[in-house]
Design a protein around this nucleic acid. Structure first.
Lengths: 230, 230, 230, 230
DNA sequence: TATGAATGAGTCTTCATTCAT
DNA sequence: CATGAATGAAGACTCATTCAT
């Protein structure tokens, strides 16, 4: 699917897996630390202790290297997200939203480099594949949330007049900011998402998810309240 | 406050105001188009038709130029935001939130360069003053929203158990994303914030604000929620 | 004769003839397209789908490969040229000159790669064997034309006062340019040698040969030509 | 006329004329020695003892440098050639042709670098401006010779049935080869154009011109030998 | 014998900064 | 005070060649 650009020049596939791992790791780190343009191929090969030519033999170009890293990352992201969605144990919407926030945060936390590279790409115009990659990722995320909301509406958990697209937009914005904040005390600004204490972080994520839910759920004041006994 | 870094080297202040204006304008444009690192001093002096040495005489360095631009931008942002806050004509919280969204969007729209530079800085680690400037801006914004929420709680417009800091975080996330989306169809992803039609944009902004409000307001045994006492 | 440099490192001779053929063909094409320095060993092995090491095992170096190709080409050139010369059916000089032009052009046309490589070598100093190869080729050609002229003088078809070396020089210059023009519209510059119509090309070649034979000036029964009695 | 590409980036014009001269001289030498692709900017700045950046400030790119050199050369060539043509002292065609050969050779001899660069460009495909520059030069040369021939026909000095275009082609080929031979003993192959003795060279050039004028064959194909009584 | 990964000097080009004029 | 020529480190990328497998 994203094959056309992500395939390394075959040489790379034949490498010793351990070396291959290091190459990916250090390259990803360089992009995460410096962004695309400021990342330096010189520095990468320096970290790795390999010849400059080798990296170009593997990936053809700086951009090729980035493409490879990025599509690998995409694959790694998709799997856990789909797992969440498909773990459809008739959970109520608010709980599912909490789960999405918590597990999304867990993923970003365990793959800080991938997350950071992604975040950079969102706002740096100069990125080589920005348009293509971004619309792909963004589209998937919004679709995912929209379906979540629509499902909730079907089950009467969400006010029918809510625009699913708008709700998805809002959820995505909140989650994105939350994930960003959790590895940047600066952006967290004291809220607690970048805390080292996991339960604190969980509580904050839940608080955000709940605030969103309360806005989306039926006014509850009304009467027959099917879930009065929740 | 940010004096230490923003003061140009005196020479600049003595310049013909018109020339001074052009220098600031074109430099800002360059940073907005290319981000900090990718921005080129060569190109800036090219646009301006002035000697390269002059820019260094005015601002000492590329970083000095950026500092100056950024602090000027900050000043320009603060004023209208405070105006909104202080225009406290006993408006109800949901309406005020709408106003903040709409006017914030209007500001970003009328100062696209400032907005874009700011957006870049948020996610580019390499920025020279990122930490300093970002915590400053972010802090002010969060404080602003927190006070807004606390005021709402005082007046009973917002559920007392809502954590003002969490609410501020959420509002800021939503607004930030909305403003970003409005000049990037890619990030808007079809929602409508990047539409050319002003009323469409207003409607979307209002939808987002309302969704936030509905979640924040008391459970309202009473029926028709947000606009109870308009 | 050119043995010292053209012999491949034995390995190559043992190759499957079909593969051997492809190697020579594609290598020649690369040199023809890009010239010696700009030709890329990487591209050659790419075209061929063989290992880079193999080419070096066959020919030792890029230069070795070129030497081999070039001496093979020389062999291929000599044979048909000699055929023309020896087909000495008591034809008159002007007709023979026409034949040489037409058949030379036919050869260059049917071996465009060889011809192009040769042409490049004539003017590119950097070529590895330029001196050696060029003097060899050029010498043979000039000798060939000189003998042609001398034969003509013996039979009284050419003015005795003509310097055979000078005539050979002139003929070679004209033929060389004609052959070059025929695959380069740019150098043909509208004369018609690069036309796709064979009879057009033949006519132009004949025109050149005839002009050499007859000269530009009128037959001058009259006196004061350029010193008739030298 | 060739302004668009040849204009150096202004900086160069303001240089100390002596330095400017050295830059042009050494750059031309590098291109003459190595051709376009093989010429090295590193080597040029090495020869000159200036910073690499300077050369790029002057000419923007390697190609820009070459363009500049080339158009300067064109200007230098045009002037003397036009001088010959316009020195129309009712000289007869054969003498005028001799003059063109002799003076052309003198020019090439006194500007060996220009001549060599030009020669390279003729046969190296990869040259950046080959098409444009070559058609320009070639066109002018052929036009020049065609007019010379047509003038000769008008005055009855040249057979009316001669195709002026073909004649121009032939003359150009001969002259081009002669000029090339004169600085390459290899291409001269013993003819004498690369001799150090000026009168020898002049004699050879004249011989070539005369052979073109008179042709190789005896004055009249027609048997009755109008000049039996010479 | 064939392979192809590794190499590293070399390519052109950009750029912020300095300093003599 | 303005100028802009000079700088040279750093950038991405190429390529012929070697050598362990």
């Amino acid at each position: 699917m994203d094959a056309q650009s992500a395939t390394p020049l075959s040489t790379f596939d034949k490498l010793d897996p351990q070396k291959r791992g290091r190459v990916l790791e250090e390259s990803l780190a360089e992009f995460a630390e410096h962004g695309y343009h400021q990342a330096s191929v010189n520095r990468i090969v320096g970290r790795l202790g390999i010849a400059k030519g080798s990296l170009f033999q593997y990936f053809g170009s700086k951009e090729g290297l980035f493409r490879h890293l990025f599509s690998r990352a995409l694959e790694e992201i998709k799997t856990p997200l789909k797992a969440i969605r498909d773990a459809d144990t008739g959970e109520a919407f608010p709980l599912r939203l909490r789960r999405v926030f918590v597990e999304g945060a867990a993923f970003a936390r365990s793959h800080p480099l991938i997350w950071r590279v992604y975040r950079r790409m969102v706002t740096q115009d100069g990125f080589p594949l920005r348009e293509q990659l971004l619309s792909q990722v963004r589209g998937e995320a919004l679709t995912y949330f929209r379906e979540l909301v629509e499902g909730g509406q079907t089950r009467g958990e969400i006010r029918p007049e809510v625009d699913p697209l708008a709700a998805a937009f809002l959820i995505e914005a909140a989650l994105d900011r939350a994930l960003t904040a959790q590895d940047s005390p600066l952006l967290d600004a004291g809220f607690g998402l970048s805390s080292n204490d996991e339960s604190t972080r969980r509580a904050r994520l839940a608080a955000l998810a709940d605030m969103l839910s309360r806005g989306l759920m039926p006014p509850t004041g009304d009467t027959n309240a099917p879930r009065a006994h929740d």
